[in-house]
């Protein structure tokens, strides 16, 4: 059975709820490969977002997963890798 994938829409929803959006930033634009810093999210915003992902998906992410993922694509891939590992276990 395929694990429900973590999508860009999921990430945007959780980002907005955890950390809002900066003035002049359109999360509906092409943001997959835009660095979080450029999108206006610093480490604390990502920590908060990571915590919300953990709670919603019932997983536990290492701190490095969040600090190393510097774009939405990197974070989505990391979460999906974790979900598939968790699903296989």
């Amino acid at each position: 059975m395929a694990t429900a994938a973590f999508t860009l829409d999921d990430l945007k929803r959780i980002l907005l709820q955890s950390a809002g959006a900066a003035e002049g930033v359109d999360l509906d634009g092409e943001i997959l490969d835009t660095e979080f810093e450029v999108l206006g999210y610093e480490s604390l915003a990502l920590l908060e977002t990571g915590g919300a992902i953990e709670r919603e998906y019932g997983i536990s992410l290492d701190d490095e997963v969040i600090t190393d993922a510097d774009t939405p694509r990197a974070l989505i891939d990391a979460v999906n890798a974790h979900l598939s590992t968790a699903g296989a276990a």
Binding site: L16, S18, A19, G20, A21, E23, E48
Partner: peptide, 8 residues
Amino acid sequence: LPSRLIPQ
């Protein structure tokens, strides 16, 4: 204020 500042 921008929504970015509300949760914090």
